[in-house]
Design a protein around this nucleic acid. Sequence first.
DNA 1: TAAGCTCTTTAGAAAGATTCTAAAGTATTG
DNA 2: CAATACTTTAGAATCTTTCTAAAGAGCTTA
Lengths: 146, 146
Amino acid sequence: MTPLEHKRPMKKADLEDRIRAVDLRPTKQRIALAELLFSDGNRHITAEKLHSEALDAGVRISLATIYNNLHQFTTAGLLREVVVDSSKSYFDTNVDPHHHFFHEQNGTLEDIHSGDLTVSNIPELPDGTEISSIDVIVRISPDNNS
Amino acid sequence: MTPLEHKRPMKKADLEDRIRAVDLRPTKQRIALAELLFSDGNRHITAEKLHSEALDAGVRISLATIYNNLHQFTTAGLLREVVVDSSKSYFDTNVDPHHHFFHEQNGTLEDIHSGDLTVSNIPELPDGTEISSIDVIVRISPDNNS
DNA sequence: TAAGCTCTTTAGAAAGATTCTAAAGTATTG
DNA sequence: CAATACTTTAGAATCTTTCTAAAGAGCTTA
């Protein structure tokens, strides 16, 4: 995270408001997940990883609840799902349009801010269709010499 | 497929050569898969779909063999894997650099030839990394009015 | 605050895709 | 043809994600 970047260490009440704002009940589990997800900058996380973070933080929560809420948050626009690996799903707390670096070595994602990469020359779309999103993944790996 | 597009209805001997060329033995199963994959223009196919096509074509082949060979062909550069859906893998017979339309409605892929779409302004890469590939997925869905 | 209703959570089962195992089969080489 | 190495296969196993149905918790009203 760069020094000037937006950051918001959220209070619990703010998190509750944020959950209420999307018409979900602020349960203990949701608040705990929201805290893990939204308290400290942008994150890219898998269900399994979020689950273990929650357990490590002392929150008793089942994996099913993790999945339920990741999907509900995504539907509500609080998260966005990123497809980079055919074996698991990543959820991104940055819901503004942007792209990603994917470190193939360790399965880690890094944001590319929207202005930093341009897609142009998009060909005519198939008839009767419209764009629902454009995803650019720049897959990177450790280079030979360094 | 457009009228002027490259097409090569391959003979069985050509397929065998192609398999030998990547140091694999031309078994009955490999030849049958190569025929389904490479005989008629570019394809985007899942393991399950290829399996059922093979069975329909009267080729006795197990799903494990499908997976084995899809991976071996991919490693050999005869196929390329496209990640668009977190629940299954697609294999593309077009191994030249290019991008994709993904029809969200029916899970279908369509090539965007390399010259038809440009990615520019790629930001500086993280230290010690190099690009291994750039994937652009233009996700499309049926539009409201048509 | 109690009742009642709805939404949530949960454990465990189930599903779906992919990989693994180890044994039987086949291509290749000499 | 024999010896060797590579392949195929059925079925089990694994992994991620979803489902089920029962118990629990938040919310509204009186």
